[in-house]
Amino acid sequence: MTDSISTIRREALGALERIGDSDALSAWRAQYLGRRGAVGKLFAQIGSLPKTERAAFGQGVNALQQELDRAHEEHRALMESQVMARDLEEGEIDISLPAYPRRRGALHPSTQTHREFQTIWADMGFQVYQSRDVEEDDLNFTLLNLPPHHPARDMQDTFYTTDPKVLLRTHTSPGQIRAMRDLGDGGTKPIRVILPGMCYRQEQVTARSEIQFTQVEGLAIGRNIRMSDLKGTIAEFAKRMYSPNAKVRYRASYFPFTEPSMEVDVECFLCGGEGCRVCKYTGWLEIAGSGMVHPTVLRNGGYDPSEWSGFAFGMGPERITMLKHGIQDIRYFWSNDLRFLRQF
């Protein structure tokens, strides 16, 4: 009977050596080590042997089973390492083939700039106050120190609605009055808000001007708000928005709702102030209009201008976005060409 053990052993090991794929290996395992396999049959024979031989035979079959198990495992490992080696050697792909296209969403560039604004201003304690687009003439002009027939009304070409008391806001400034009345608690509370939103002007649409555009207005009201605070605040914004070394220049200007009023220029970040086409060779880029809130506006917002003071500023996110990305045509913003939008 030991012969049959050694025969099976020789046969099995011989067959194993010739096996090159995993199906054959499974078949081999079934043939020899399966429940009905050759080794199993040997175990089944034990009972039919004389008692004296049983122990020795049993040990022999056990040893065979262990040996074949081991050999199977070794052969499996060998085959696996060969497959891996072959894969490493031959499984090269052309990595220059195009990727499978993944879809990427895109935030509108205007939204991106607004977010950047909001983050910077939030860090300085300015919260977003949302105001309306369709506005009363009173709030857009008169209460902002621009009574009817005021020369400064010429500065803005207004879209009026068929109700002459109602117009599309030409700037976010009417939100100043709304914020003061809404948050000021009868002129007793300080305010720090920014007012972002869409504004409208009846202009020829060109590469440089649009009939709708966004603005971000800022307003700080307190008992001791100084012009130096306005300068410091804007300088801080410029550092965060443009560069830590951004140089800022202030020019006297005129807005009916602020006094003193000033335009804010930042050193051209495209040419470093040396002068280039974008900054019209002046070295400066206009980034904001600003000033101390006009006493009349404070009054219209419910504050006593001899006790309270404030500053306000207005910025144009589209212009800043254009400068930052070299956008030559403002009409790109609302034309919603995906070839443009997908670049953000």
Binding site: G125, L183, K189, P190, I191, R192, A220, G222, R223, N224, I225, R226, M227, S228, D229, K231, G232, T233, A235, E236, R249, Y250, R251, A252, E259, P260, S261, M262, M292, H294, P295, T296, P305, S306
Partner: peptide, 30 residues
């Protein structure tokens, strides 16, 4: 009060806005 602001603007403008320091708001935070 408005007249004071009018004069204030003239004073600041002629002295030069660049002479006004940059400060951080010391006023109460709303």
């Amino acid at each position: 009060v408005v007249g004071q602001s009018d004069l204030l603007e003239e004073i600041a403008r002629i002295i030069g806005y660049d002479r006004i320091p940059d400060t951080i708001m010391a006023d109460e935070m709303p």
